[in-house]
Design a protein around this nucleic acid. Structure first.
Lengths: 230, 230
DNA sequence: TAGTGGTCTAGACCACTCA
DNA sequence: GAGTGGTCTAGACCACTAT
């Protein structure tokens, strides 16, 4: 009998794993047994164990019981925030500047991705994000006008397309790809970087209810790092 | 009265947000009201709403109620797996090869990070990870011998240090840093890449109960991408 | 201070899966 | 078939916080 509250219980159980009382791969007592041991309802134990399972610390199977994960697969959680917040989080002043804004027939891969007809135009944007007036990231973006026609009248000089879309489109699914690339001349110029420098790139595509909305590439200034705790 | 099961309820509510029935920033009905609407217990509604809050879709405050998140901060969840699993996930055959393995006095930044005394040695490892016998990633690792002395007798040719540590050390916290860099000569040689190519780098440091265990850098072959769905 | 979410409980039934 | 986790319920009390 220790304490209650699924948080407390969770922490306690995690400790027992760390201490080695429950070794890697070991089978943990059942929920009912733990409930009586901790002197709480099974529901509470269940919550705690589900949280641990969610964190990848234990694996649960019906009838199989709960066991400590042999290969602790840790989950890193990134908050995909808008660039402005990223900049402001570093204590810098955010500003952005629209470099290019036009209707344009996108290249083939984009056409496919957006589900456009060939020859159909989309909205193309190039934006420079600045931190304390120094280049922070360069953004290339394609927007599907069928999905978001009113972006043409949005005040994109005041609010970045990034932010406008997030605030306007109710909700969306999407994918994110992180990679590294050697910066080309165009991006290098905007970022005031030497050509060929390795930079961190994030590609993101978002949909709203199966309809493509936008795809973008974000080229971060050299030296950018993405940090997370496990 | 629609259905039950917190999954169903969660999905339903998410739909109502997507459809615009509950616009961005709007206040959602209270749990009791929703419970009667959905014809289920308040607990069930609570679960669903907590899940949505966890996903960053809504924000909840006691007395303030639940409202749709104005700035939908999406959370990307990465599974920090061992390299072998990463390789095998692509359908390739995994193999690794220990290039260097020695006791060595680490450079200053590492000493600080590991909490060593100056002049104290640590275990240094260089490992090449291969996919179908082609270079996949190059790993540099420092291990704190005070924390894990028996790594010296581990069969690191059969099982990578990466995997051995994960399987041996009960549990640990840590941090992860993603970045991009221009590959230097040493790494380029191992990865069979041209010097200066942009590669994706992951730095990871792990602790076990406040004690430093290991720090490593993983240099991925050029072209490597980290993918996630939102 | 009143209202909302946060959590606990005790009991129940279901669903999966291992043997 | 039996055992374990998954989930629901109805009621209760607590904790935070907006007003």
């Amino acid at each position: 009998m220790i304490k209650k509250s699924h948080h407390t219980v969770r922490q306690s159980m995690q400790d027992r794993i760390e201490v080695g009382e429950w070794p890697l791969g070991a089978l943990i007592p059942g929920e009912i047994e733990l409930a009586s041991e901790y002197g709480c309802a099974r529901t509470t134990i269940n919550r705690a164990l589900q949280a641990l399972a969610d964190a990848g610390v234990v694996v649960r199977k019906r009838k199989g019981g709960t066991r400590v994960c042999e290969m602790p697969v840790r989950h890193a959680k990134f908050t995909i925030s808008i660039v402005r917040e990223q900049v402001e989080a570093t204590g810098c002043q955010y500003r952005h500047s629209v470099l290019t804004s036009m209707l344009k027939i996108p290249p083939a891969p984009i056409v496919t991705r957006l589900g456009l007809k060939s020859g159909e135009k989309a909205f193309y944007l190039e934006t420079l994000h600045l931190a304390d007036d120094r280049p922070f990231a360069f953004e290339e973006r394609w927007v599907n006008l069928k999905a978001v026609p009113n972006i043409l009248t949005a005040p994109l000089d005041d609010i970045s397309a990034n932010e406008w879309l997030v605030k306007t489109v109710p909700f969306s699914s999407g994918d994110v790809i992180f990679s590294a690339m050697n910066v080309d001349q165009k991006v290098a110029t905007s970022l005031e970087t030497a050509i060929g420098k390795a930079i961190f790139v994030v590609k993101r595509t978002t949909w709203y209810k199966e309809e493509f909305i936008t795809t973008m590439k974000l080229f971060y200034k050299e030296g950018f790092q993405l940090y997370t705790r496990l």
